[in-house]
Simulated scan of single mutants.
Amino acid sequence: MTSPAAPPPDGGVVPAPPVVDDRPAGPDAADPAVALIAALPKVLLHDHLDGGLRPATIVELAAEVGHELPTTDPEALGRWFVESADSGSLERYLETFEHTVAVMQTVDALRRVAREAALDLAADGVVYAESRYAPEQHQRAGLTLEQVVDAVQQGFAEGVAEAAAQGRTIRVGTILSAMRQADRADEIAALAIARRGDGVVGFDIAGPEEGFPPSQHASAFRALAEAHVPATVHAGEGSGLESVSQALHVAQACRIGHGARLVEDIATDDLGDRLGPLAQWVRDRRVPLELCPSSNLQTGIAATVAEHPVTRLKRLGFKVTVNTDNRLQSGTTLSRELTLLVQEAGWTLDDLQDVAVTAAAYAFAHHDDRDALIDTVIRPAYAAARGGRHRA
């Protein structure tokens, strides 16, 4: 978790937030639950730091380091990211990160990006967030891994403090990711172990799933398990059921990053839905899924939010959470993701509370902190939203 720090020296001026996709969300915009979403407390478990930059910040930082962008107009750049990511290919989607990573190579840039991320999430009503990034990707200008982590932690601390000064409460834990196509997982796992309790709450592997299974990084996951550091693994997005199986049994993942393709192990016939052995294992053991509807549409998981597996998996009793993945590339916020589910998939206030409670319950925070978040923040807010009728 981050801890409060002094407000930044720029007077606390908050630039414009990222461009948000303003395409019509669905036909039921008048649903009463929609009006409540912005004010309800939210918990976010899957959000990439290098996928949530403000377009204006990218333009400014790129000018400082001489990095060429597709356009220097912030609004046009925001649209470019969404359009480029909206390709139906995970590999093409990942290419957009060259521009964001390129401007995140100095201590000042990393601090700024982390600070603004905390502010933007708090402005969206997120009260607890886990932000992930790969320290190894921010060493082009000579920073050490420790310097990268220190800069990000300082930025988050500044953002948390500034949000508090604005009357918004947010806690941020960081998840250190190793790029699965590289060979530094042991090093990043050791870093996560060393920085546990100092803002770092867990470990992840990210990047292209196909051809880079968790088994390639088995020694890193063994070290994490022996040190009692939790892991979440990207699986079941770009690759199928085998990636989920390895995340569970090789990586000993506590959560599955995405996991949408788990529906490939669920058959439907005249008798209803029948779970295959892997899906049954995930549901029986209450392994939470970090589902990201808009992002998954961009990478070809589903054609519409209504068809996205998140609703089916939730109805079948899986532990489902809703996340943003990359707010810049998807032009989204957590409020927008939840709004889309209400408008296009028929979600109710009860559904929104369920995913908030599930996300809080499976966060990589301590048990007492999770319980306090659920009992003193989430449930009371939903009770108030229902006009004081508390529902357990």
Rank of each mutant, 00 (worst) to 15 (best):
1 M>V: 10
3 S>I: 13
6 A>G: 01
7 P>T: 01
11 G>M: 09
15 P>T: 02
17 P>H: 12
18 P>L: 14
19 V>M: 02
19 V>F: 13
26 G>K: 06
26 G>H: 06
30 A>H: 12
30 A>D: 15
32 P>T: 12
37 I>N: 02
39 A>F: 04
39 A>K: 14
41 P>C: 08
43 V>A: 04
44 L>Y: 08
46 H>P: 01
48 H>R: 10
50 D>F: 07
57 T>W: 02
57 T>F: 02
59 V>Q: 05
65 V>R: 12
66 G>H: 04
68 E>A: 14
69 L>G: 03
70 P>D: 01
74 P>M: 08
78 G>P: 03
82 V>F: 12
83 E>P: 00
85 A>G: 15
87 S>P: 10
87 S>L: 13
96 T>D: 08
100 T>Q: 04
104 M>K: 02
106 T>I: 05
109 A>I: 08
124 D>N: 12
127 V>Q: 04
128 Y>H: 15
129 A>H: 09
130 E>H: 08
134 A>F: 11
142 G>Q: 11
145 L>I: 13
145 L>F: 13
146 E>W: 12
147 Q>G: 12
148 V>A: 11
153 Q>S: 11
156 F>R: 03
157 A>W: 12
162 E>M: 08
174 T>L: 05
178 A>K: 03
179 M>C: 01
185 A>M: 07
189 A>D: 06
192 A>K: 05
194 A>I: 05
205 I>W: 02
211 G>Q: 05
211 G>T: 06
215 S>N: 06
223 A>Y: 10
225 A>Q: 14
230 P>E: 06
234 H>Q: 09
236 G>L: 01
240 G>A: 14
245 S>A: 15
255 R>L: 04
255 R>H: 02
257 G>I: 06
258 H>Y: 08
259 G>W: 04
267 A>G: 01
270 D>E: 15
275 L>P: 00
275 L>T: 07
289 L>D: 02
293 P>T: 04
294 S>Y: 03
310 V>G: 01
317 G>L: 10
326 N>I: 00
328 L>W: 11
330 S>C: 10
343 Q>Y: 12
353 Q>V: 06
356 A>T: 09
362 Y>P: 00
365 A>D: 13
369 D>S: 13
369 D>T: 11
378 I>F: 06
380 P>T: 10
384 A>K: 10
387 G>K: 06
389 R>M: 07
389 R>S: 13
391 R>Q: 13
